[in-house]
């Protein structure tokens, strides 16, 4: 652990491990939103299930709320890893929320490596997808 200036440059708090953050506000998946997402990655959407990476919209929303609550700057975050495990595909008509928890936290070379998991559930409370992310928080001196 480093001391001088630690709290200024390294805001990530060790007691976060295991903490569960409040669910994001419900997100209504519409054909228009799915089409936008598909078009943005160069594909065409003819209706039906959303692309496999679409749930990142929910997970990202949950991550933003987490970063804001911990006063961590988004621009210091680089994505290290992402994994999805699906119970079923996301479809228009789903109303989804994401609940993020902090799974792990370690420091390497002045960077914080934050492991999170987000569970994405539909309006009936059923889990649609679980996703884990590793976020690399680049320290000021890194």
């Amino acid at each position: 652990m480093r001391f001088g200036g630690y709290f200024d440059s390294m805001p990530v708090d060790q007691t976060l491990i295991g903490r569960v953050f409040p669910a994001t506000k419900p997100y209504a998946v519409s054909e228009e939103r799915v089409r936008e997402f598909v078009s943005a990655t160069g594909g065409t959407y003819d209706g039906g299930a959303a692309p496999a990476t679409f749930p990142i919209v929910l997970a990202f929303d949950a991550m933003n709320a987490f970063l804001e609550s911990e006063s961590i700057d988004l621009f210091r975050i680089v994505h290290g890893e992402q994994r999805f495990s699906y119970q079923r595909p996301v479809r228009p008509g789903d109303v989804l929320t994401a609940t993020l928890s902090v799974a792990s936290l370690r420091q390497i070379g002045g960077n914080d490596i934050i492991g999170t998991t987000s569970e994405i559930t539909d309006q009936s409370g059923a889990v649609v997808c679980a996703t884990s992310a590793t976020l690399v928080h680049r320290g000021v001196d890194a």
Partner: peptide, 10 residues
């Protein structure tokens, strides 16, 4: 096909 798992490191 329905995707059941997807993952990678960056």
């Amino acid at each position: 096909a329905e995707v059941l798992e997807l993952g990678c490191k960056f």
